[in-house]
Design a protein around this nucleic acid. Structure first.
Length: 252
DNA sequence: TCATTAATCGCAC
DNA sequence: GTGCGATTAATGA
């Protein structure tokens, strides 16, 4: 594991020169930086950004590694997790294009409290902490957008705490399916993100076996379909009804 | 095809 | 609900 880590960071520094994708030509308007680009163009933040490419399964944020900057997802999908007792993984959230990884470590924190792994081939933009600081201190609109983002993240993580502590396993699994559907959408009736049963479990805060059991129950009830790793929703309304009393599907 | 890896299922606690 | 082990399906070289 240790050698893998250093490889990861070596790759990051090696690749920095090879493929810089300019913010100017970027199409990703979900990105906080892209949306504020007009005000930011002259900062080093833009001229000194780096791009890196992660293959599926590659970890690009290590738990405990020092924080030097923030990652923005240009393309792809990642899972953000923290490891608990017995190496049990708790997936904190999933992230897609335009979202920020590592923002919790920004500011006073020195080390990442989370790890992040690419779920598919993913392109990342990397901005150094110092350059971000400079831009934030000099541009209140940008800083305000950042603040909104943080407030929003806090909101989501609070409702996640509630869902894990108050919902049954079945409800949590359903909530997870709906969350992924909201976030990543579906193609041909199947969720546009392929996860293992273990990853569903790690997000829902339960065990892989439980996810399998709930899935097969839901299949019998014709609420979902499953073809290998692909999960399809057949009756979204009934699923929503089951967790409606918790009201969790409204946000996050 | 064979070998791994993932998904299920059954059962005890 | 959880965790282990056996079985079966899926995937990849």
């Amino acid at each position: 594991m240790r050698t893998e880590n250093s490889d990861t960071f070596q790759n990051i520094s090696q690749k920095r020169v090879t493929s810089i994708m300019s913010c100017n030509t970027c199409e990703n308007f979900n990105c906080l930086i892209k949306r504020n680009l007009n005000d930011l163009e002259d900062y080093r933040l833009i001229s000194e950004k780096n791009n890196l490419h992660c293959k599926k399964g590659q970890q690009f944020v290590m738990e405990g590694a020092p924080v030097n900057g923030l990652f923005f997802i240009l393309k792809g999908a990642v899972k953000v997790f923290s490891t608990g007792i017995n190496g049990r993984e708790q997936i904190v959230r999933f992230a897609k294009e335009g979202e920020i990884i590592g923002h919790r470590g920004f500011g006073t924190e020195e080390y990442y409290s989370i790890g992040a792994i690419a779920l598919e081939d993913t392109k990342l933009c990397y901005f150094s902490k110092n350059n971000l600081q400079e831009a934030l201190l000099n541009n209140s609109k940008f800083a305000y957008d950042f603040m909104l983002f943080y407030a929003n993240e806090l909101n989501k993580s609070e409702s996640k705490v509630k869902s894990i502590s108050q919902m049954t396993v079945r409800e949590r699994v359903i909530d997870t399916i709906l969350y992924l559907n909201r976030k990543f959408g579906n193609i041909n009736g199947f969720l546009n993100l392929t996860l293992s049963r273990k990853e569903y479990a790690d997000y829902a805060g339960t065990a892989e076996e439980q996810v399998i059991r709930v899935f097969s129950a839901l299949k019998k009830e014709k609420l979902i379909t499953a073809k290998g790793k692909k999960i399809g929703i057949t009756n979204i309304q009934l699923l929503k009804n089951e967790i409606s009393e918790h009201n969790f599907y409204l946000d996050s």
